[in-house]
Simulated scan of single mutants.
Amino acid sequence: MINRAVLMLSYKQSAVDWINEADPYNSPEVTLSSVNEEKTVYLVAHEITETPKELEAWVKLNCEVLFENELYGWYVDETLWPKKRNWTLFKKWFSYECHSVVEDTVGAPILDLGA
């Protein structure tokens, strides 16, 4: 087990509507089901999962970064992104779940491959 928890966002229909409307050349249109088949997994500090209130506070504090990461996954052109990326819109577009038990089965160091 490692000292991390896993946070995953699920898209709501409002976000799917934006994905389909933001780019007129998007074909075929994505569906709520298809957009949630593969999720980005965010490793977070294990401590934020101790209470639902602490988890919500962390997600709220970091919602802009999470929001931008998800938007970038769809469109790198930031002019297509919603201008107001706040907690209210985040809650309309995403639900989230967190799992506090993460087991590393590889047995090798965890490397940052994004750098």
Rank of each mutant, 00 (worst) to 15 (best):
I2T: 11
I2F: 06
N3D: 13
A5S: 15
V6W: 02
V6Y: 06
L7D: 05
M8G: 05
L9G: 04
S14Q: 15
S14G: 09
A15C: 14
V16M: 09
W18L: 11
N20K: 14
D23H: 07
P24R: 15
P28D: 10
T31M: 09
T31V: 07
S34V: 13
N36H: 11
N36K: 13
E38P: 05
T40Y: 08
V41G: 06
V44Y: 09
A45W: 09
H46Q: 13
E54C: 03
A57V: 02
V59N: 00
V59A: 02
V59M: 05
N62A: 04
N62L: 05
C63K: 06
E64R: 14
E64I: 00
E64K: 09
V65H: 01
V65L: 07
L66F: 05
N69C: 05
L71Q: 02
G73F: 03
G73W: 01
G73L: 01
V76N: 10
T79S: 14
L80N: 02
K84D: 08
R85T: 00
W87N: 02
L89A: 03
K91E: 13
W93Q: 00
E97S: 13
H99M: 11
V101D: 08
E103R: 09
T105Y: 07
G107R: 12
G107L: 08
L111N: 06
L111E: 08
